[in-house]
Design a protein around this nucleic acid. Structure first.
Length: 231
DNA sequence: TTGTGTTTTACGACCTCC
DNA sequence: GGAGGTCGTAAAACACAA
């Protein structure tokens, strides 16, 4: 037998082993169980060639069980090589490979089925790892952005406080310099402690003020925002 | 040596295609 | 309806730590 004919010499450089030490016995169950010839054909027993009838394997085979036979390294290597070329297994190719590897065509078919399943699992794992990596990088970016938002929020809060303080001083200065007689009946005793001059008249400026704890405040920041933009 | 986890081989059930 | 596919699973074979 041409030992490289299964996969062609250019496809596979190794020597294909001769007939396996294992013989496969097909014990086709001809009884009509109603599950079709395919199912019937699958009922088969296998035993090792070198084992005797007293061997435990054979005893179990006699009992309708079989021992799984691990494929040789050479067989697996060649099946792998064949699988690399084509994942699907049409009938003619299966028979050819089986014949040259000394395997049951059913074994070749099963091997390809299992190999496809392993290949699919591997692909899924790779895809999962890839997606997980992308997800992790997105999460990291999100954390960085959230941290940045936090810092900017703090800066904004500080800036608003600063603006508020400046606005208070400005109001006090403007009201004290433009009016010596207050129409806003604010007593000197009501002046904020930390201001040099208490506001005496806001009518000319239409400044929305309120007093709390002896301090005058802008009622909202909108006034200051507009004033600030004028600068 | 043995218990345990993983891999490999094999099968049944079910599905699709021709 | 048959052939060959996937999917889930059983069980043998194997690897390895304790």
């Amino acid at each position: 037998m041409d030992q490289t004919s299964v996969l062609s010499s250019q496809e596979y450089p190794y020597t294909i082993p001769t007939q396996s030490e294992c013989i496969i016995i097909y014990q086709i169950d001809g009884s009509s169980s109603g599950d079709g010839s395919k199912q019937v054909k699958r009922r088969r027993k296998r035993r090792s060639k070198g084992s005797s009838a007293t061997n435990e394997d054979d005893v179990r085979a006699m009992e309708g069980m079989f021992r799984k036979r691990k494929l040789t390294d050479e067989q697996v290597t060649m099946l792998e090589y064949s699988f690399e070329n084509e994942h699907k297994l049409e009938s003619g190719r299966k028979e050819k490979i089986a014949g040259e590897l000394g395997l049951d065509p059913r074994q070749v078919a099963v091997w390809f089925q299992n190999r496809r399943a392993r290949w699919k699992n591997k692909k899924l794992e790779e895809e999962y790892a890839k997606l997980k990596s992308q997800h992790d990088s997105v999460v990291l970016g999100q954390c960085q952005l959230e941290s940045q938002v936090l810092k900017l929020t703090e800066q904004l809060s500080e800036a608003q406080n600063e603006i508020r303080k400046l606005s208070e001083r400005l109001v006090v200065q403007e009201t004290s310099t433009n009016s010596s007689s207050s129409s806003l009946s604010v007593e000197a005793n009501d002046a904020p402690n930390d201001f040099e001059f208490a506001p005496t008249d806001t009518t000319n400026y239409n400044i929305p003020l309120y007093m709390l704890d002896n301090n005058y405040y802008l009622q909202n920041m909108e006034y200051w925002d507009g004033l600030y933009e004028q600068f």
